[in-house]
Design a binder for these strands. Structure first.
Lengths: 251, 251
DNA sequence: CGTTGTGTTGATATTAATCAACAAGTGTGG
DNA sequence: CCACACTTGTTGATTAATATCAACACAACG
């Protein structure tokens, strides 16, 4: 279950994020090979801007003109079917890259969950970037590889796990900071109290369920004393061991 | 639906693959930046070997010591739950890379569907490779990005599509050569007759269904005149238009 | 103080899974 | 060459899980 996450790259000089609420560490650090004077050149290429919570900044099907690096906040990434069915494929926090794949149009949409700050690079500028900072390419490869591992884990969840198992997996992943926490921010232990800044609809669309099933399943986990639900957006893990065996498909 | 696939890299000099049965083109070509004398140095680092059909060569959980490049044949990649439930996360054909993510253990298993030939690189040798051939890194990034796009499409399928929609998507993807055909081999048109070299069990585990549902759904598509099933491992698409609207969630 | 958005809970419907039987190859050994 | 087991795929009957439809609780907000 140990996932190695790429240490993210700062591309915006004048915006250093707050320390992580859980571990106190800065959620991202400067890529070792991109320092000082290099960083200045890099920052000169970036177009940093702010996205309000709820605003979407990538629309599926639009021409894929830009490449993004998240500086702070979190976005949800999703794909849609014509009748409105939605699958959230992941959450992108500080340090994450978006729009890496070379294709004519974006294959996904992105919307800010919390107000976020991101850096935009045009494709030509990304090319300049990659030529000037070879280390960036390695970092991107690392990030993409790890995302691929996460995607495969999510395919197992969506294809083969029950609703209970999906929720248990989700809560544990969230507790371990794998979902919607700044990348590269590794917590010593696992938080037993976790916040759910996303709505039930988002959770449902991420887990391939309906909001009703999410709600019911959480209620059932509560009556079984595996979790507590002080408020709808706050969950306490009471029996991590049981949740873990549930998440891995035992029971 | 247009997916851009990375042009694959030949890493085995003395084994050039047969032309694609559909389009006659060689299924892969030499990476533009890795030519002639470079190729010789590259090949010296590779450990090419053969895997018989049905043999698995990567076990989930084993120490991730090697990096692989598929020369010919196809492997299925999968993840398992302790009770035996299996999710096939994809098929890797000629030119595909396996074991890219840096982690202590493999997060997936791999088994040859058809007899295949693959090149193994130890991690230290992969490092040498990446240092000596910077172009390889870009190619790997390209490949990983495209796989990520495919993974997200599959998440939409697993999380939100019905059995009928999944089968329609699968058949079309297969017809378009996106599944289990050599990467980089682009066909002018879409084949209306497709072969299914994998078993119903594999299809079911790829689509997150049971073999019975796969069988029944195919039968139903046949009675509706959308497909023909001359033999269980051969399918003719009779109404591509209807299949496409089905696959995209209409109807 | 109503209105709206979000979450919960209940009743019912529907899809796909499960359990079971059988059919069609495929290979083996007598 | 033919019985036989064995694998793979199909079809039927039933069950179970989750979706759908509906009502309601509660908080935030104008």
């Amino acid at each position: 279950m140990t996932t190695f996450r790429a240490r993210p790259v700062v591309v915006e000089m004048n915006h250093l994020p707050d320390p992580c609420a859980h571990c106190g560490a800065r959620p991202f650090s400067v890529c070792s090979a991109i320092e000082d004077q290099d960083l200045a050149r890099l920052a000169a290429l970036a177009h940093p801007f702010t996205i309000e919570a709820g605003r979407s900044f990538i629309d599926e099907g639009d021409p894929a003109e830009n490449f993004y690096n998240v500086t702070s906040g979190t976005a949800k990434l999703f794909k849609l079917l014509p009748d409105g069915r939605r699958q959230i494929t992941g959450f992108a926090g500080a340090g994450h890259f978006l729009g890496l794949a070379v294709s004519r149009t974006y294959s996904f949409g992105a919307e800010a969950v919390e107000t976020m700050r991101i850096c935009r690079f045009s494709r030509p500028k990304l090319r300049v970037l990659l030529e000037d900072f070879p280390a960036l390419e390695r970092r991107l490869l690392e990030a993409a590889s790890n995302e691929l591992v996460a995607a495969q884990e999510q395919m197992l969840l969506l294809g083969r796990k029950t609703a209970r198992e999906r929720l248990a997996s989700f809560l544990l992943a969230r507790a371990e900071g794998q979902i919607m926490l700044p990348a590269g921010c590794s917590h010593a232990g696992r938080a037993e109290a976790i916040s759910l800044p996303m709505t039930r609809t988002d959770i449902a669309d991420y887990l391939g369920l309906t909001i009703e099933t999410v709600s019911r399943t959480l209620t059932r986990l509560r009556t079984e004393r595996l979790i507590e639900i002080p408020t709808p957006s706050e969950i306490v893990l009471r029996d991590v061991h049981a949740l873990e065996s549930l998440a891995s498909g035992l029971n």
